[in-house]
Simulated scan of single mutants.
Amino acid sequence: MESTEKNNLHPRNSHRSRYDFELLVQTNPKLQQFVQKVKNTDQLTIDFDNPKAVKSLNKSLLMQYYNVENWDVPEGFLCPPIPGRADYIHYIADLIKGNKAEIPTGSYVKGLDIGVGANCIYPLIGASFYNWDFVATDTNLKALKNCSTILQHNPDLGEKIALQQQLNSRFIFKDIIEPEDKFHFTMCNPPFHMSASEAKKGTTRKLNNLGLQKEAVDKTPNFGGISDELWCDGGEVKFITQMIFESAKYQQQVMWFTTLVSKNEHLKSLMKVLDKIEPTEIKVIEMKQGQKTSRILAWTFMTESRMNNGRFDEQKPSEENDF
């Protein structure tokens, strides 16, 4: 089988090569029913238009590369592409590494995932690959209950991931970050549409691009997503703006605040918001998955000296340092 590298993915991403379907079927025999040959070749693939096939592939990838068993998401919730989600985790690792020789690993590194959804993907990958600890939040109780079920099937990872419901959807960090908390990073894949109708138009456009019928919109979990995941009043600009203003209240408790930004044209207005709270440093990190380009917006209020003098020096907890 050809092993063409996806050079646009992060160098540490486990999914840079073509999917090894023979290996994945050995890991998860249930994937076999969806595997087929690419026309006129011996290469194996699945029908990526088939949501059941995509979910089975996700299960297989999580089993093979992250030791996650019995992963599943309820119908209607987002079924995310694993390679792109892994990229975000690896770029965060680069951020918190800074100019150190090694990437900080272990449970003293603590991340906060805002809007974890029902899939729990970011904490699962981060906890498995880097052994980080996570607090994962969501406003949707059903989503959190599904995450809890996944973690019950994976007790080693479950010990590293705490779930917390945000009871007030007007806030992002408030009532989540407590006075005694310290996080090396926050991360978020914000709802990017401004309304339910706009979200449905986006899904219909995706399906049409794939040659699928419009009536498939509501039946396609890999392009699915409940309202919390796909849209909010004001879209991602309003959501991230709220996140930025709130972050100023927790600038001594978080090393790096980060969020995905789906549209490049949104960066200009978000940068103006960031200027108002005067962070020490702002970074925009581009990520590419196939034809899609997204970006991570990251900001910190801490000086490089403070970050370098924290726990990152020691690779273990220290009572003498802030982090």
Rank of each mutant, 00 (worst) to 15 (best):
N70K: 13
V68Q: 01
F239M: 04
M307K: 14
Y130M: 07
A93P: 06
N208R: 11
N58Q: 02
Q291V: 03
D138F: 10
E159H: 09
L297C: 06
I172L: 15
Q26W: 02
K263C: 09
E75M: 04
K39E: 15
P81F: 07
Q251A: 12
N209C: 06
K206I: 15
D94F: 08
F134C: 06
L157N: 05
P51Q: 01
K214E: 11
Q36T: 12
W132C: 09
L167H: 12
Q166A: 12
S269L: 07
L230P: 02
N8I: 03
N99I: 11
Q43Y: 13
E265C: 10
S294M: 11
V237K: 07
K283Q: 13
A127F: 08
K100I: 00
S262T: 14
C120F: 01
C147V: 05
A93N: 09
V237A: 01
H15G: 02
I172T: 14
H90P: 00
Q251F: 10
I89W: 04
Q253S: 15
C147L: 05
I103W: 05
E278T: 13
G115N: 03
E304A: 14
N40D: 14
T293P: 00
G76Q: 07
K206W: 04
N146T: 04
L144K: 05
W132Y: 07
I96F: 05
S197C: 00
P51T: 05
K37Q: 14
N28I: 07
